[in-house]
Amino acid sequence: MKFDTTFWMKLSQIDRRWIFLVIAITVALPMVLGIDFTAVPAPMVEKVFQTIQRLPAGSKVLISYDYGPSTVPENQPMADALVFHLLSKDCKVYMMAVWATGERQSQYTIDHIVKPSFPNKEYGVDYIDLGFKAGGTGLINMLFTSVKRMYTTDRTGNDIQSFPMMSDIETLKNFDMILSISSGAPGLKEWIQFAGDRGNIPVAGGVTAVQATELFPYYPRQMFGLMAGLQGAAEYESLVIHMYPKFFQHRSALRKMAPQTVAHLAIIAFVIIGNIAYFMTRKK
């Protein structure tokens, strides 16, 4: 093979389907081989963990599922690890969703994390799923003044007044902490702007990697911590596993770190090849 100008020219204008093929292989291979990675927690992730770790038993924490099936690989491990951590600390967990698609994801956490790992925790006493309500940012606004006006029933239609853990919840200010797992708007940013800032309520959460840069300016004054993308989720999982080893069986983000790592390396390789080709064609 001759590495002349034509070769480099062709390489720099390579059909993108070849790139797609390489990415598909690099993502699939580590998944098939089942390679596991570890993650070293970043300060922003550690802050979320430590703040929850310091919460006294019985603290009331609202967790909002603001995402849909498309970002489940990134967001679901965050929500699962947070709920596991909160229930391990005997906090009261209030799940809800600003996105219609979030309702199914909170159900997933209950079925796969809460019920198998905490069989003694009682629905309505230790945790509750309020479900989805329409309104987006408007819903957050309304919850700020009255939770029970918007949520008269839980997700399955039971009267909200019948649950002991709802007796002292009137407004968002009654929560000790708000967590939002989001992949867009309304999401964590809206929870900071319309609930955390207004009511001086500690807010944190997790977002997709793409959304993360938009949230950084709020740290640490308006948002006490953040899990950014799959990496953030993996870091939180490693912290939870370190403290509660039985969470190891539920790890999901850590398993997905291998495909992400290899895919990142593949992208770097493509960029390097592209630049070599660019310089070779320019030189001639």
């Binding site: 790139i19 797609f20 990415i23 993502v27 498309s70 992208i267 960029v271 592209g274 630049n275 660019y278």
Partner: peptide
């Protein structure tokens, strides 16, 4: 139907990020 379709479209991003990076990231 809905979940796999949503995941499929969203996962296109991984491929498009690679092709866009290959084309746009040139040290010009």
């Amino acid at each position: 139907v809905f979940v796999p379709l949503q995941a499929t479209i969203f996962s296109l991003l991984a491929f498009f990020v690679a092709s866009a990076a290959f084309r746009a990231f040139r040290a010009k």
